[in-house]
Write a protein that binds this DNA or RNA. Structure first.
Lengths: 201, 201
DNA sequence: CCGATTTTTTGAACGACGTTCAATAAGCAC
DNA sequence: GTGCTTATTGAACGTCGTTCAAAAAATCGG
């Protein structure tokens, strides 16, 4: 015995790089889910996964990078949730409403993690990350495809997608920060349906 | 001489309590305007106004309180900007579009300070501050009055106000975080007009 | 006008934080 | 085994928000 005692340094061999990154990301997501952005700290995160902070710096990067990774995962999860909400043979209008419903359901089920995507503001001089733009485009493309039969013209449809997307975002954002309930008792899902129906005429 | 030398303690008599609070709020607003939420720190704020951090704690409170005060001021400024945008004898539709324009112009002119209102998320267990709800209601009431001739029924109008307000917020929010330009090259003002026009039929 | 009390102001300290440095140990190629 | 790369760590640095206790100015009662 006493052979497996850690002496403090050296690789453990428990994870390869990718596994460790995933471990860090999921642990960070859990912290945010329970206590929000304020609950996510480097030392705390390291303690949760049972490593020293430096291991996170080595394999992932600083706190901003960790947040970005959580956000990337959130966008993927949102995309998956939206995909299962639409059915190819349903009327476009129904699909649009179903997308709005799924969006708000996703946000309501995981408000703190979703909020992290927008609470975290990247430095205004740094370039917009490519993977981030792509993850966003992958999701809004879903809306684009749903609207295609209703708005065949490309530019017009792109504007409609952006506007509807922003509208849903606004409803979700004000909802999670309790600024929507102050204005009206209606659940955000009803307002989202109102928005989609009125916008699509 | 040397009579006016500060020896480190005791009131200065330069400001009464209200003036000092206003001084702190405006200095904090300036810091946020230049460097965003990350640029606002207690020690830095104290240094800017030439006092010790403790004086801010004494007269105002902790950093969260300072942020709240800046946000209250921002909502007031937004309200003033919106009031001057509408004219009582214009068609309601034009006033609605004018409100949207003024909103987005305000955000574009002061994006960092405006973002602070939504970046700062209050603790989820604490009660929603009354003055905050009132400042919000004061502003959305403007929208309500503008829509009154178009949507006479009260409940329906309240929902329309909330939805439009959230939609504008979403456009502004995605715009300041550069997440809207990724989707479409149109300036947010055009999308806001699209939203208002389509929504109001 | 003076003494007591309240209010304002401060330096110093505390604990926690993000991040970096230098050292050490494990895994790996040959 | 030997040398090299990689993972891992404790300790340190500077900064931060906040609190404490003391001191000085303002205020008030007589």
């Amino acid at each position: 015995m006493a052979k497996t005692v850690r002496r403090g340094t050296g690789p453990r061999g428990d994870h390869n790089r990718e596994e460790f990154q995933s471990l860090v990301t999921k642990a960070a997501e859990g912290l945010v889910r329970q206590e929000g952005l304020r609950g996510l700290g480097m030392r705390r995160l390291a303690a949760v996964i049972g490593y020293a902070p430096n291991s996170i710096y080595n394999a992932v990067g600083d706190l901003d990078t960790v947040v970005m990774r959580v956000n990337a995962r959130t966008l993927e999860r949102l995309h998956d949730a939206l995909v299962t909400a639409i059915s190819p043979d349903a009327p476009p209008r129904d699909n649009a409403v179903a997308l709005a419903d799924a969006y708000l359901a996703f946000v309501q089920a995981d408000p703190q993690v979703w909020s992290l995507v927008f609470e975290h503001s990247l430095a205004p001089d740094s370039a917009f990350p490519d993977w981030y733009a792509q993850a966003l485009a992958r999701t809004t493309d879903l809306v684009d495809r749903v609207l295609q039969p209703m708005i065949p013209e490309e530019d017009e449809r792109r504007q409609a997608v952006a506007t509807l997307w922003a509208g849903l975002h606004g409803l979700a954002s004000l909802s999670t920060s309790r600024k929507l309930a102050v204005l009206t008792p209606e659940p955000p899902r009803d307002l989202a349906r109102l928005l989609v129906r009125r916008f699509l005429g």
